[in-house]
C-alpha cells in the first residue's frame, strides 16, 4: 500500500461532501468553471468567469426582477388538470401530480403584483422547472387574468418567459391558449398600458409565437435560445448545419425581433428606466 492511501475517509468529511457537491458549488455549463454558490448568488446567478446566465427558479426571478418583499401572488389556486385523459409513456395526470409535488406549484405560471424600482407593475413568470414551462390551460387562464388585472388596476404588464412552448398533453386546448393570451394583449394595448416581454433561456414554440413576441418592448437575456421551431426540428427539415449563434438573443437583435439584451446584473434598474420612459412626461 502506498503512502498516499488512507484506510478510510475522515469522518468529518462524510456528511458535508454531499452538501458541497449539491449545494455549495456549481459547475458552469459553458466554461466548466467550478463556482462557489455564494459567488454565484453575488453575481446574480451568472458565471463570474465567462458571464454565462444560469437558468433561474421563479423564487430567484422574483428576487432579481422585483423590489425586495414587494411581490404579492395572485390567482395561485388555478392549477393544471388533465382535460383529455392523455397518456403517453405515463399518464398526464401522474405527470402533473409529480411536478406539483416536486415544485410545490400548481402550474408553470406565477402571477402577481410587485414594484420595480418603486413602480407598481403586474408581473408574471413562466417557469421552466414546471414541465418545461409549457403553456397549458391553467397557464393561459392565469396570463389572461393577469392581463385583466393590469387593465382594471391600470398597471404596466411584464411577463418573464422561459418555456419550450405549448403543452402537448392538452393538445388543441393548449394551442387555443396562444389565441387567448394574444387576444387579451390586444385589449391591453387598446388601453395604452405598456407590456414588456422578457425572454429568458429558452423561449420557443407556442410561447414565442404568442405573448412572448408581442411586447411593446421585447427584452432578452444574453445567449438565450429564442425561436419558433427548435434547432433540432429545423436541422431535420433542411438537413443542413445551422449557423453559429443561430436563434440566440444576439441573432434576434441582429434580425430585428428583440429590442435589446440586458445582462442580469443591473437588469431591474434598467427595466425601471424603460418603464419610466413608457410612462411619458
Amino acid at each position: 500500500m502506498g503512502w498516499f492511501s488512507r484506510k478510510k475517509k475522515p469522518e468529518h468529511n462524510k456528511d458535508t461532501s454531499v452538501d458541497i457537491k449539491k449545494e455549495a458549488w456549481k459547475k458552469c455549463p459553458q466554461c466548466g468553471e467550478i463556482i462557489w454558490m455564494k459567488n454565484l448568488i453575488d453575481s446574480e446567478y451568472t458565471c463570474p468567469s465567462c458571464g454565462y446566465h444560469f437558468r433561474l427558479t421563479f423564487k430567484e426571478k422574483i428576487v432579481l426582477f422585483t423590489d425586495q418583499d414587494s411581490f404579492t401572488e395572485l390567482f395561485e389556486n388555478i392549477g393544471c388538470v388533465d382535460p383529455l385523459n392523455f397518456k403517453d409513456v405515463q399518464p398526464y395526470k401522474k405527470r402533473i401530480q409529480r411536478t406539483q409535488q416536486k415544485t410545490g406549484r400548481k402550474s408553470a405560471f406565477v402571477a402577481g403584483v410587485a414594484k420595480i424600482t418603486g413602480i407598481d407593475v403586474a408581473i408574471g413568470f413562466l417557469n421552466f422547472e414546471f414541465m418545461g414551462g409549457s403553456l397549458g390551460s391553467a397557464e393561459g387562464e392565469k396570463i389572461s387574468l393577469l392581463i385583466e388585472h393590469a387593465i382594471e388596476n391600470h398597471l404596466p404588464l411584464i411577463i418573464v418567459s422561459s418555456s419550450g412552448g405549448a403543452r402537448m398533453q392538452e393538445s388543441i386546448l393548449s394551442l387555443m391558449q396562444m389565441a387567448k393570451t394574444s387576444g387579451m394583449l390586444g385589449e391591453l394595448g387598446k388601453t395604452g398600458l405598456p407590456y414588456i416581454s422578457v425572454l429568458l433561456d429558452p423561449t420557443t414554440g407556442g410561447v414565442s409565437a404568442s405573448f412572448a413576441m408581442l411586447g411593446d418592448i421585447n427584452i432578452a437575456e444574453p445567449n438565450a435560445l429564442i425561436g419558433f421551431a427548435g434547432p433540432r426540428v429545423i436541422q431535420q427539415t433542411i438537413k443542413q448545419d445551422l449557423p453559429d449563434g443561430f436563434q440566440k438573443s444576439e441573432f434576434l437583435v441582429e434580425h430585428g425581433m428583440v429590442d435589446l439584451i440586458i445582462k442580469r446584473k443591473g437588469f431591474k434598474e434598467k427595466l425601471g428606466k424603460i418603464l419610466d420612459y413608457l410612462n411619458g412626461n
Binding site: 389556486n77 388555478i78 392549477g79 393544471c80 388538470v81 382535460p83 400548481k106 402550474s107 397549458g136 390551460s137 391553467a138 393561459g140 387562464e141 389572461s144 392538452e170 386546448l173 387555443m176 391558449q177 389565441a179 387567448k180 387576444g183 387579451m184
Partner: peptide, 8 residues
C-alpha cells in the same frame, strides 16, 4: 377564446 381551456 377566453372561455377556452380546462383547469382547476
Amino acid at each position: 377564446y377566453k372561455n377556452m381551456g380546462i383547469y382547476e
